[in-house]
């Protein structure tokens, strides 16, 4: 990462894309074997307030499961997901040594092979056919100030992904429309996404941005709140409402239907109010590294 100074030019930090490959390889394995501490804490807190025998037993097994995965370095869940990769690239960084997209996919390929992770990607949505190496990654790049590259790997399982939903509301639907949609989506998901769930909500932007916001909401710590007190309160209220549904761990009935809910927002058009709800499970994985 030697900084190169050319005459009459600003200093530009150079980063070889092979370093991004190496980091993604490592993060794919770590994310799949070690659940984030905030997710573990949320599960443990929910266990403490679950009285039912079956519900409590399920949460005990979920805790035992992530402890085994930690200790024995094995995947927490067999659905090791599609590799969602978020790159925040400092605008003062010059990436060298090859194609960035190829470097990212190479990292996924190596990580899923070396980590004995399941290859769950098909090369065509209709004609199917496994690609055999879990590529391509679902890759998002953002240019940010600075001279670092921040890499987040979020392996996303599809039991929960399949239960997600997006709706383009009329602005007249208001706050109540959004609240009802979030609860309806979780209720419709029921036992399918391996509850207790983590719920990511994206409100605003365009059709595509709302969905991306919802995915990013899943990458945010469950100990954090939306910085806007209005949305922080809405996060709390929605989590309470969801936990009044009674779906419970694995859908067997109980208090703990969701262990967390994060909301992300963007400004939107005068005519619209998009809302996306991305459902995730108790194995909500993400791991971040900085180069």
């Amino acid at each position: 990462m030697a900084a190169k100074v050319q005459e009459g030019e600003e200093v530009m930090r150079e980063i070889e894309v092979s370093r991004i490959t190496e980091m993604i390889e490592r993060l794919c394995i770590e994310a799949n074997e070690h659940l984030p501490e905030d997710v573990k804490d949320a599960i443990r807190k929910c266990r403490a307030c679950e009285d039912g025998e079956i519900a409590g037993g399920v949460l005990d097994r979920i805790i035992e499961n992530y402890e085994i995965a930690d200790r024995e370095q094995v995947p927490i869940c067999q659905d090791t997901g599609m590799a969602c990769i978020f790159l925040e690239i400092g605008q003062d960084v010059h990436l060298t040594g090859g194609d960035l997209t190829a470097a990212v996919n190479e990292g996924v390929r190596r990580g899923y092979e070396k980590g004995y992770l399941r290859k769950s990607v098909v090369k065509d949505p209709i004609r199917r056919g496994n690609t055999g190496d879990n590529t391509p990654a679902m890759m998002y790049t953002e240019i940010v100030p600075g001279e670092q590259v921040t890499v987040t790997v979020g392996p996303k399982g599809f039991g929960s992904e399949n239960m997600s939903a997006i709706r383009m509301f009329k602005p007249s639907a208001g706050l109540q429309g959004i609240k009802d949609f979030i609860v309806e989506t979780v209720e419709a998901a029921g036992p399918n996404p391996c509850p207790p769930m983590v719920v990511g909500v994206g409100i605003g932007g365009t059709f595509d941005k709302a969905a991306l916001l919802a995915k990013k909401a899943l990458m945010r710590s469950l100990e954090s709140s939306n910085p806007d007190p209005f949305y922080a309160d809405l996060e709390k209220e929605m989590l309470e409402k969801i936990n009044e549904l009674g779906i419970g761990p694995q859908g067997f009935g109980g208090r703990t239907t969701a262990i967390g809910l994060n909301i992300e927002t963007l400004p939107t058009h005068i005519a619209g109010m998009p809302c996306a709800v991305n459902i995730s499970c108790h194995v909500t994985r993400h791991k971040t590294g900085v180069i």
Binding site: N65, A69, G159, P191, N192, Q250
Partner: peptide, 29 residues
């Protein structure tokens, strides 16, 4: 894990089937 369609439940009644749930996400265990 997860819900079944009514036609599956009808077949289970007809053929005496049983649907068991394992804890979803507990792959290591």
């Amino acid at each position: 894990k997860g819900a079944r369609l009514p036609e599956v439940v009808e077949a289970m009644k007809k053929y005496k089937g049983v649907y068991f749930g394992a804890v979803g996400g507990a792959g290591a265990l």
